[in-house]
Design a protein around this nucleic acid. Structure first.
Lengths: 250, 250
DNA sequence: ACGCATGTTTGCTCTGGATCAAGAAGAAAC
DNA sequence: GTTTCTTCTTGATCCAGAGCAAACATGCGT
């Protein structure tokens, strides 16, 4: 399961040279990966690069959807506000992920940075033009959407049928995989989300998330390094719990 | 919210003459709607029409994804089996909906008929050819995917933050809307799903679904007609509850 | 019409996670 | 360094919904 990492599949289809979008300016964005040199050249003039601080909103729910964004550095949170004022986190996004693409006139959710970072912004009408000029790019979007849909369905399963600890374990493993896929090495990962964010994503309260994390810590499965570092010492145990295989080591 | 009705948006964009796919043989499928006469002609030879009985599987999780299906009559259920054997219903589909489109080699979920019905089957490689010949069709798929993604996110919100009664109310309203969008008139709707199906879709047990339904019945919001007929007598009350506006009529 | 299978309702108990409350630990500001 | 703010942890209680069990419908096959 990879509920928070929609581009996993996008990456898989690519050679390693374009595996992560570390240099949007040098035109190796995930989105642009299938384009040849000429097309990339065409594309390059169309996009702007923007820097954001922690907590800055990239776009807000209800904003006119005039742009499409590629997150080039950092981590972001996607949030949706319900009519009654409750807020929910519907996902997290990392470097290389595409944000805010929709055929609708308005963004159905907002995106906020969890860390400082940079974003590559493209005018939507220009993107549509690019689609017409380079159909392979539209195909890429379609594949990505189907993958993301599949990830959403995994998340739906998790919310509907998994216990609190199973969900938190799945989240941690998923987070680690997402960071590794983007070149992270070593057992200590960034955890730039608050307990409240995780809770709102997993359909739990922040206290329940905290209790699950404490429980993992007491079992020796994880170690915390300050407020934003986490070490998965027994990743296998977490993965087993996440897969619903509570106790099968006899 | 319309968690179980992914083609809602597909329909909205169309003139009424092609609003529902009642005659796949006569080439008015939702999928084919944006095609002109020549393209439709091209398409018609490529598809097969199949009839299914209640409970028949259209395809199973893990099957090679060699075909794409359009449900032309009846209602189907999409299910996914978890590694530990638990089953979850991830959605319902109606006439006009597309089933089983994926860039993967295997179907990630299974589809079973809840009623008798018919399905229009298209070879996936032929569909890819059609995409190349008629790019507008690929665009249609993309739009549909984005819409479906948005519906999934709604469902994620519902699972994460709504109470049992709110979820059941939302489901009933959504079901009614889906049937009306397909030409249904009158206050009595088909409810071909069992309580267990609804529960597995909403992340609840069948008993909890039954209790919610009974509670609505006692409040006079719905009436049951046999096991598969339901009348929404006070649809507004259900809709308010579904929207999280528990009590705001002062 | 009868019997059987499948699905539904309802009652009861129990538990996982929500909720409320208080403190502890980091991080940032001065 | 100290203060202050935010986030995290932990404890205690409560309740929505799960789980179990026992009738109760509905509809199908014969």
């Amino acid at each position: 399961m990879h509920p928070l990492d929609a581009t996993r599949a996008l990456m898989e289809g690519l050679g390693s040279e374009s595996s992560i979008c570390m240099k949007c300016g040098s035109r190796s964005v995930g989105l642009c990966a299938p384009l040849d040199a000429a097309a990339l050249d065409d594309m390059s003039g169309e996009s702007e690069r923007l820097a954001f601080d922690q907590r800055d909103a990239i776009f807000r729910q209800g904003d006119a959807a005039r742009h499409v964004y590629t997150l080039t550095e950092g981590m972001a949170r996607l949030t949706r506000v319900l009519p009654d004022g409750r807020q929910a986190v519907i996902g997290f996004r990392f470097a290389g992920d595409i944000l805010g693409f929709t055929p609708e006139a308005e963004h159905a959710f907002g995106a906020e940075m969890l860390t400082r970072g940079t974003v590559c912004r493209l005018d939507r009408r220009r993107l549509e033009q690019m689609f017409r000029r380079y159909p392979v790019m539209e195909r890429r979007f379609l594949d990505l959407c189907v993958k993301e849909l599949s990830a959403s369905q995994d998340h739906i399963l998790a919310l509907g049928r998994f216990s609190a600890e199973e969900r938190v374990a799945a989240f941690l493993v998923s987070l680690a995989e997402a960071q590794e896929r983007r070149g992270h090495v070593g057992p200590v990962f960034d955890l730039p989300t608050t307990r409240a964010d995780i809770g709102e994503f997993l359909g739990l309260t922040l206290e329940t998330v905290s209790r699950a994390v404490s429980s993992f810590r007491k079992r020796g499965w994880i170690r915390l390094h300050g407020h934003s570092g986490i070490e998965l010492s027994d990743r296998n145990a977490l993965a087993c719990l996440a897969a619903g295989e509570g106790a099968d080591a006899a």
